[in-house]
Design a protein around this nucleic acid. Structure first.
Length: 417
RNA sequence: GUGGACGUAGCUCAACCGGUUAGAGCACUGGACUGUGACUCCAGUGGCUGGGGGUUCGAGUCCCCUCGUCCACCCCA
């Protein structure tokens, strides 16, 4: 084995890439029907963008970023998530001059983590952001869109959990309350939670350590500390979801790993992914745009992990014969005529490859089968003389000799081609 | 960053307590079948046992180091 891909960075081979393309196509279709347009932001940004958006004390920033100095000495970072770059572009190009902007993006993200099932160092997300809409209906409608997407691509068993994290108006008071509560039970908390008590006590609610779960069982719920605005917003999200027929359970322990979230947060999980069971997650981030120097702009967004969706979809995947023909010429003259014919047939949209191998017809037929082609087109000396070609359907084993002129029509009208 | 499992042919795996020339299935190539794939039968190609060091008369097997994969923790999509 000579040079291999680096750890956590994977090749997506054609069979899987096709599945990915289906996921992306369906996503784009659904997003478009809700009025989203695509934005393509760079993969590398100034490190500062992520420090200021994600938060300096988050795990992502503290230990997971691919950060390096470029030749000028600027600190740059491979994007660990998609929202911050989108918001940066939104501000930079003054897209806020439009009252509501709905954007989606797709592409690779990078986090330096130990790879495991459903988690890689380069991973792909499709995400969408609604910028400039404060209404709880925007939250609910976007969630409905996501659930619809999962339904259309055939992903089964997606479960939606929601929570509200409050806003800068009410969260500080809650943090105090929770801090006091945790302080009383400090002995039973894990070291991690004790360390984070001062900076981000909410993380203790999310901790999976049995001691912490037990200790925080009766912690004061955020819901009771929300200000009138946040509480009303949360109720409205729930009732709108109800009217849209979307089931959502409230998970009052759910805390996101990024600092910019406010009010609604959510996570969609599915079984079959191992420990990494979230397929999509996101929430509202009303303070991010202004925090990065733009105008006050309430926003809601999410990101979906393509690897994880693909992992779940692969369970009911099967190999199909591809809409592809293989051209097999017997002899030099037939080969010469072949390139001419292929040129015409391809012009008519027939997907076709030529088998240039020297082997017997038998071995060449075998190759055609191996690449799972639908048709084998055999041009021998007799066919050549008559202006015909033998067309064999590899799925039915039936074959017929056709005049060159009608081959393209015959093939393209076949079902599944 | 931490813990556990595992690295043997292209793939999936076998090889007893350390013992002769490391095997099988699948795949690949050819033949049975002169121009017809899949099913069947026969034959053949294919290995620095991840890499390095050590113990031993002898290492795929035991010990150490290293690299890698997987799973879990942490965290997250």
């Amino acid at each position: 084995m000579s040079i291999t891909a680096i750890r956590g960075f994977n090749d997506i081979l054609p069979e899987e890439a096709e599945l990915w393309r289906r996921i992306e196509e369906e996503s784009v279709n659904v997003f478009a029907s809700y009025g989203f347009s695509e934005i393509k932001a760079p993969i590398v940004e100034r490190t500062e963008l992520f420090l200021r958006s994600i938060g300096e004390t988050t795990d992502i920033v503290e230990k997971e970023m691919y950060t390096f100095l470029d030749r000028n000495g600027d600190s740059l970072t491979l994007r660990p998530e998609g929202t911050a770059p989108v918001v940066r572009a939104y501000i930079e190009h003054r897209l806020y001059e439009c009252p509501v902007t709905k954007l989606y993006y797709a592409g690779p993200m990078f986090r330096y983590e130990r790879p495991q099932k459903g988690r890689y160092r380069q991973f792909y997300q499709i995400g969408a952001e609604v910028l400039g809409d404060a209404s709880p209906k925007a939250d609910a409608e976007t969630l409905e869109m996501l659930m619809r997407l999962f339904e259309t691509i055939g992903l089964k068993g997606a479960v939606l959990q929601i929570n509200s994290l409050g806003c800068p108006g009410c969260r500080p008071a809650y943090k105090e309350l929770l801090y006091a509560f945790l302080l009383e039970r400090k002995e039973s908390l894990c070291v991690n939670c004790i360390r984070r008590m001062d900076t981000n006590p909410l993380r203790a609610l999310d901790c999976k350590n049995p001691g912490c779960i037990e200790a925080t069982k009766d912690a004061p719920p955020i819901a009771e500390s929300l200000c009138a605005d946040c509480a009303g917003h949360f109720r409205a999200v729930q009732s709108t979801l109800g009217r849209l027929g979307i089931e959502a359970s409230i998970n009052k322990r759910m805390v996101r790993g990024l600092d910019y979230y406010t009010k609604t947060t959510f996570e969609i999980t599915a079984s079959g992914l191992g420990a990494q069971n979230a397929v999509a997650a996101g929430g509202r981030y009303d303070g991010l745009v202004s925090g990065l120097g733009g105008p006050e702009t309430p926003c809601f967004g999410f990101a979906m992990g393509i690897e994880r969706v693909a992992l779940l979809l692969k369970e009911n995947g099967f190999l199909k014969r591809r809409p592809l023909s293989v051209f097999i010429a017997m002899g030099d003259e037939a080969e010469l005529k072949g390139v001419e014919l292929l040129r015409e047939w391809r012009k008519k949209g027939i997907r076709i490859v030529e088998d240039f191998s020297e082997g017997s017809l038998k071995s060449r037929m075998k190759r055609a089968d191996r690449i799972r082609a639908r048709y084998a087109l055999i041009l021998g000396t007799d066919e050549l003389r008559h202006g015909e070609i033998t067309v064999k359907d590899m799925t039915t084993a039936g074959q017929e000799r056709l005049k060159w002129e009608i081959v393209a029509d015959r093939i393209s009208s076949a079902e599944g081609y």
